[in-house]
Design a binder for these strands. Structure first.
Lengths: 153, 153
DNA sequence: TTACTAAAGGTCAGTAATGGTCAAAGTCTA
DNA sequence: TAGACTTTGACCATTACTGACCTTTAGTAA
């Protein structure tokens, strides 16, 4: 029922959980063979599911003895928040980045699923704002205030 | 008496009753084929028969392996919410009324303190929007989407 | 060293597979 | 027959997947 990309994502995340080192090394071609697809499909999955915003770091090496390494980042909530707040205060913030932040906070159990969805919904509503610049600013404001609030409670 | 839309409604409701999970997943195109109509007819049926007011929630995903999920809600607080929703959809909503709704939901223990604050914070951020009319609209959108979200989770 | 080769992995544009929207046309019904 | 409800179809948006072509690296023969 589910598609290739979803199954591959699930597979890789399972491997990550089982890995004591916190990262996994894979061979692009081997994985493609295992899932009966072209190698570039791996990049699609990595590019859509294992982004930095979602808390993953992907490194790779080409050529002989090449590999793709997927690492799950472990950051403390404090670091996360202060980094993000700095970014935000500096100006606006992209929609993608904002969502990444929310996702991370959820993974860190700092906010509940419902809270994370509420925040995402608030971001969504901003799509209705016509002006690009204003929207970015508003998004920054919104996210900052919500984060500050979460710190308080 | 028995037009396409009615027959399709009946069919889907039958499926829902038979589904242990409380929801069903369908393929828009397949269903259209089964009923010998254009795909958009499915959207018409969903939009007229499976609305929130009637206790249904519809979610979907596009692209390969996409789907349309229809969920039957267990009514209770949902009733209350849909009442609020009707008000909101009618146009914008005042800041006061918005806060009133949030307060009410908190009192009913439908949302936590933290959740209520998050929602209020989101409303606050809108103060930065200059244009009065746009602000009202945006507030309506925002609150509506957040309430819809709460129903889902 | 140098140059060549094989073995990786990366990019990107194109295609396929879905579902969504909206307005116009058709059909019923009070 | 006006207004409400249905149905259709053209056009749009999103997500997944593929393949041709490109870049990098390790190994090795000269």
């Amino acid at each position: 029922m589910s598609n290739l990309a979803d199954r591959m994502e699930e597979y890789l995340k399972k491997l990550l959980i089982l890995s004591p080192s916190g990262y996994i090394d894979i061979k692009r071609k081997e994985l493609a063979n295992k899932f009966l697809c072209v190698p570039s499909q791996i990049n699609y999955v990595l590019g859509t599911r294992f982004t930095l915003d979602k808390g993953y770091l992907v490194e790779s090496k080409r050529g002989g003895k090449g590999y793709v390494r997927i690492k799950k980042l472990q950051l403390s909530v404090e670091n996360l928040l202060s980094t993000f707040l700095k970014d935000i205060v500096a100006g606006g913030i992209s929609d993608e980045r904002a969502r990444g932040i929310i996702q991370r906070l959820y993974e860190l159990k700092y906010i509940s699923l419902r809270e994370s969805r509420l925040m995402e919904t608030a971001l969504n509503a901003l799509k209705a704002v016509e002006d690009n610049t204003i929207r970015e600013e508003l998004r920054g404001l919104l996210l900052r205030d919500m984060l500050l609030l979460l710190i308080k409670f």
